[in-house]
Design a protein around this nucleic acid. Structure first.
Length: 699
RNA sequence: GCCCGCAUAGCUCAGGUGGUAGAGCAUUUCCAUGGUAAGGAAAGGGUCGUCAGUUCAAUUCUGACUGCGGGCUCCA
């Protein structure tokens, strides 16, 4: 007998060789039916894994993320079996479990697979699942594994196995399907009752664009149909919070094809939100000793060659802007402006008739136009603000006494994102960063990073955004894309790690997530669909000061190299507002609301008083409007609610006689008889205090 | 850029085996003068994303393009 320690500390005896599932059966049949997998001494295993010595066991059910993980991983295998049965000759890539569901990458050999095929696959999966086929683990050698998948002609599996070290490889078999897999898996397929395939997408083998593109099929499964139905309803609910939908409903922003993809037009209502945020952050910057600056939207190509952006990130920039004379010179002698346009059009037409032409960058890209690009220095729409800020720093001699120099700007930058990547406000081609660059001594770096981090935290706390994670992005030791000296990288990475620790927030370190010039600390949040977006970022940079040969005069009267810190607590105002819209589901706190107060008269007799009231509110700096449309009061209340106006005032005889207001909140709650002066004061206080909750006291 | 899907009025959506289209909301006007989530009526509004092809005829079928959505890749 062996002794099994359960999570509550109790110990149960078990015959050696029996499994966690046997243990569950011994405790209760219901528990056994709910046991999906088990954690043995901290490691997730099959529930059927034989236990041979004393250990701690936690039975994993649907309520446990690891239990669901095993469930969905097994579901991926089940889907693969169904696909193999329905589409003989399909080749399989990888099929992992996700946070919500699973996917499998499949090569259908050129056959198109679309959502129209889902139903058939779902039916087949359920049919197989009903057979209660056990998932059997099997140890094989590398040679056996290669032999098996070689004979099966599954090139992707063979590719995977070839990448493995020699040693034991595990297979899992259920029914007639065998997969290369580490596990763990469910005891049998019968656990999977509700099945829903969600989407198909292309995915490159091993995530490399140069490799074959496989068909990735996403799905989700549940132990009960009811749970699937509830999940689908919850998904629909989440979509109602989508910033693209709310942005349209509340007229916060507009993106117009004719202006260009990924270029956000801020409408009046959205502009209010943005302006309030900018005012708020500007105030915080002043408190922290920042100086605000303004710089133009373009800079010379040579500037970005110095900074390194142009050569390294040419692909992600808009094509250079080149002076018409230079272009003309480039394109031939005696080339008039109209002739030049004709030529550009002719080249564009030629490109358009070919495949994969992109943006005309081939046409006016400086290096293509002239063999010697010295003759032609175009301008670039700025992809980053740092070179401009660096030039401000370098515009005068700096003493160590001046440091740190903190230059801040709401700087708009432009990046040529791939068309397939653009998404509402969260991924765009032109956006405004709440950017700043700090120039400091090496000794000042830790304190400055900490200052940046606490600023980010202050901002997120004010907005009630507690659901974020912190990621320390380090360099990938195997990649050559980074510039700068390894010892500086080490110092910078240490500074970032220390700062994150000092701040006392949980964080993860992720190699390969650093910027090309230095490590960074990112604040990452999820949108309604569960996608992660990077918002605030703090980056340490030893590289650009070298490239621009920056220096300050030290106490020793010698030139010293400053260190730069790039930071943007919101990231970009576009992305941040997009996330914010979803965070509040369009119901902004009072200070951010595009319209704060709406006045509804009970009937037209109170129109004049209503106008006077709105004038008073406006004079107090509040955003108030009168709804005097000839609609019923009920209708106007409804519209005000749908417009998410936080304070809805109803005005009738009683209010005019008593000089009070009757407030309706978005919750539907009513506060009657608030003296007018008190109401205005409370509004001003809500606004100034940037309160998250809107409440009014009757006196 | 790549894979799959989608595109009908300002918005949400119906419709049609090919014969140029409907609803609700919104807008405008009129009536109703309303006490907290839709009072009533009328009117205006569409080259059915764009361009080709097939056809006597295309919004409907084919193709390309553009845009959007979900992924992939990328993301300073």
């Amino acid at each position: 007998m062996i002794q099994i320690t359960l999570p509550d500390g109790s110990v149960r005896p078990l015959e050696a060789g029996q499994s966690a599932l046997d243990l569950a059966k011994a405790i209760s049949p219901n528990l056994a039916r709910a046991t999906l997998a088990a954690k043995v001494d901290g490691e997730v295993r099959d529930a059927t894994f034989p236990l041979t010595r004393d250990c701690a066991v936690k039975l994993l059910t649907w309520d446990d993320p690891d239990g669901r993980h095993a469930f969905w991983h097994s579901s991926a295998h089940l889907m693969a079996e169904a696909l193999e049965a329905l589409y003989p000759g399909a080749k399989f890539g990888v099929g992992p479990a996700l946070e919500n569901g699973f996917y499998y990458d499949v090569d259908f050999g050129g056959r198109a697979f679309s959502a129209a095929d889902f139903e058939k696959v779902e039916a087949k999966m359920k049919e197989i699942a009903r057979g209660d086929h056990p998932y059997r683990r099997e140890d094989v050698s590398k040679a056996q594994a290669l032999d098996f998948f070689g004979k099966k002609e599954d090139p992707y599996k063979v590719d995977l196995i070839q990448g493995f070290e020699d040693g034991t490889i595990t297979f899992y078999r259920q029914n007639g399907f065998t997969d290369l897999c580490r596990g763990p898996h469910l005891p049998h397929t019968g656990f999977i009752r509700a099945v829903k395939l969600l989407s198909v997408a292309g995915a490159y083998w091993k995530g490399d664009e140069k490799n074959a593109q496989l068909t990735r099929i996403y799905g989700i499964t549940f132990p009960k149909q009811k749970e699937l139905d509830e999940w689908l309803v919850a998904q629909e609910e989440a979509k109602k919070r989508d910033h693209r939908k709310i942005g349209k409903d509340l007229k916060l922003f507009h993106i117009d094809d004719e202006v260009g993809q990924g270029l956000v037009l801020w409408t009046p209502a959205g502009s209010v939100v943005r302006q309030e945020l900018q005012t708020y952050i500007s105030g915080e910057l002043s408190k922290q000793g920042y100086s605000q600056v303004f710089t133009p939207h373009i800079g010379k190509l040579s500037l970005y060659k110095t900074s390194g952006h142009f050569p390294y990130y040419k692909e992600s920039q808009f094509p250079p802007i080149v002076a018409p004379e230079s272009l003309a010179a480039a394109m031939g002698e005696n080339c008039s402006c109209s002739e030049l346009i004709h030529r550009i059009e002719a080249v564009s037409a030629k490109l358009a008739s070919g495949v994969n032409e992109r943006s005309g960058s081939e046409v006016i890209g400086a290096e293509r136009v002239l063999p010697d690009d010295k003759l032609l220095d175009g301008f670039l729409l700025k992809p980053m603000n740092c070179p401009h800020h660096i030039k401000i720093f370098a515009s005068q001699p700096r003493s160590y006494r001046d440091l740190p120099v903190r230059l801040a700007e709401f700087g708009t930058v432009y990046r040529w994102e791939q068309s397939g990547e653009l998404t509402g406000m969260t991924r765009v081609r032109g956006f405004t960063q709440d950017d700043a660059h700090l120039f400091c001594t090496e000794e000042q770096v830790p304190a400055e990073i900490l200052g940046c981090l606490s600023l980010v935290r202050t901002v997120l706390t004010t907005l009630g955004m507690s659901q974020y994670r912190v990621r320390v992005g380090l360099r990938d030791p195997d990649s050559a894309k980074y510039t700068g000296l390894p010892e500086n990288w080490d110092k910078a990475e240490r500074a970032c790690r220390d700062a994150a620790q000092t701040l006392g927030v949980p964080f993860t370190e992720e190699p390969g997530e650093a910027a090309f010039y230095g490590p960074k600390i990112d604040f990452v949040v999820k949108d309604v669909l569960g996608r992660e977006w990077q918002l605030g970022t703090v980056q340490v940079d030893y590289n650009l000061p070298i490239r621009f040969d920056l220096s300050y005069n030290g106490a020793d009267n010698q030139p010293h190299r400053p260190v730069m810190i790039h930071r943007a607590p919101f990231g970009s105002l576009e992305r941040f507002c997009g996330v914010l819209i979803e965070h509040f589901a369009g119901r902004f706190p009072f200070w951010l609301s595009p319209q704060q107060v709406r006045v509804l008269t009970v009937n037209e007799a109170f129109g004049a008083y209503g106008k006077a009231l709105v004038a008073r509110l406006s004079a107090a700096g509040l955003r108030a409007e009168l709804d005097e449309r000839g609609e019923s009061l009920g209708k106007r209340v409804r519209d005000a609610q749908l417009d998410q106006v936080p304070a809805i005032l109803t005005l009738g005889k009683r209010e005019e006689d008593e000089k009070t207001v009757s407030v309706r909140l978005l919750s539907g709650e009513q506060v009657h008889g608030v003296p007018l002066e008190s109401f205005i004061q409370q509004c001003v206080e809500l606004h100034r205090g940037r309160a998250l909750e809107t409440r009014f006291a009757a006196s």
